[in-house]
Design a protein around this nucleic acid. Structure first.
Lengths: 248, 248
DNA sequence: CGCCGGGTTGAGCGTCCTCAAAGAATGTGG
DNA sequence: CCACATTCTTTGAGGACGCTCAACCCGGCG
């Protein structure tokens, strides 16, 4: 349990790519130094399971690069994704011993980890960490609630458009691309993973993507590379308030 | 905006019914006293809207008694409930100026409120409040994720059974009733509110409740009073792990 | 080359939605 | 006190959307 991972290159927190967004974002230099001392990196390959639901979880951590999913499964195999973990997102819950969900790396993944006990000690002694974690948790709660509307009330086509618009938006944010002109990105998920995210079957996902392509809402190059010529059109298809695009 | 509500009887925090569960749960006597000084009560009648999504929100607070709902609506009227607020639950987000969701009282409601600015000041100076709020937010996130599985993957019958089991469980917890014997409770929601919670139509809710009644899973007295003769049977209908009932 | 995982497309069916009517419970005004 | 409106609920008939099952395509890799 401690061997497959320590091959990650050590980094200075100072030039960490998620320095300004992760749970450590508000830390002062001295606080950061203490985190630096207890952190360690772990690498996971695409497809690898980070943790199984129900397993003892002796660490928490942040996604540094790559993408992971949080999923919940019923006994008969029905699966629902409940979280999409992107760089800077936090994994694990302070005060809980076992993992509540399966965490799976969908791409190669680097995580910045802390053993649970030392992290919780720091959390209690460092308001800057606690404040940031609260903020991030509230953001996740908002995202989860947004997703409840998608799952509960949107049609298959709207669901797909919603997912695409979210991926497009965050991709634009990540790459600091302006809001004008066509948006271009790669889908980080298989059709099946999208289906699990959206509460659909993979066939329906495939059909609706084909339909959006046929209707010119998106342009596909291969199966994963997407161009969105008119983002407002996509928002419209998603059933979202297209004018309220600037939601703080 | 300050008149319909100040009729609530003032209370001492010391004998507040949600003292040990709300955001103030971890406060020491002196901290509680300071909260006491900035708190005020507001009453709402059943059906009254507490806040509209998008409105400026100058207070936060806890539900003292009664039930409220958090809902999100699309322009065409489709509505999804994203939270059910029970006594001790917290309303409002520190650091945000406008409400993200509609908050509606479904029963007569008493809230213990704080103006936003004073509360945020206390939040920053009082780790006991921040810790408790983080814990509560993490719990809500878990509940939201649990609900995503219900919305995305369960059948109408399973959805109804899930909702009933949740209400039954929390009602038993509230009334300190043992886990043996039949469970009895009142539905705090209309069929339409249940539908909005479950991503169904009210007709489907009605039909599925009738079906569960016909099959003996529940016994109805009137439209709201429910008896569950065999709770494990209900969990089974919900598609939940019935043996893993003891989920810490 | 053949296999395998991921993806697309088609046909048929079932669950849940839509539209509609009517019953039950509560409150209001004449 | 009863007629009437209103709200909540139930039940029915028909139809649509998304699921199931199945075949096939495509690209990468041993």
């Amino acid at each position: 349990m401690l061997n497959e991972d320590t091959k990650a290159m050590p980094r200075e927190c100072g030039d960490c790519p998620i320095r300004h967004r992760a749970v450590c974002a508000r830390c002062e230099a001295d606080e950061l130094e203490r985190l630096d001392q207890i952190k360690y990196y772990r690498n996971f390959e695409a497809g690898q399971t980070v943790i199984w639901a129900g397993d003892k979880m002796d660490f928490v951590g942040s996604v540094v690069s790559g993408i992971a999913t949080l999923t919940q499964a019923m006994e008969d195999g029905r699966t629902q994704m409940v979280g999409l973990l992107l760089p800077s997102d936090f994994v694990g819950r302070p005060g809980r011993v076992t993992a509540a969900y399966d965490v799976v790396a969908t791409t190669d993944l680097v995580m910045c980890c802390f053993r649970k006990q030392p992290f919780e000690d720091m959390l209690n002694r460092t308001p800057h960490i606690a404040q940031r974690l609260l903020e991030m948790t509230l953001d996740e709660l908002d995202a989860a609630r947004e997703w409840m509307l998608v799952l509960g009330r949107k049609t298959a086509r709207e669901k797909i458009a919603s997912l695409l618009s979210i991926i497009a938006r965050r991709d634009a944010a990540l790459n600091m691309v302006g809001r004008t002109g066509p948006m271009v990105f790669d889908l980080p998920l298989t059709r099946e993973a999208m289906a699990d995210y959206l509460g659909l079957t993979l066939e329906t996902v495939s059909r609706q993507i084909s339909a959006l392509k046929r209707d010119g809402v998106i342009v596909l190059e291969g199966k994963r590379h997407v161009t969105v010529p008119d983002f407002n059109r996509l928002l419209d298809e998603a059933g979202d308030d297209s004018d309220g695009g600037m939601l703080a």
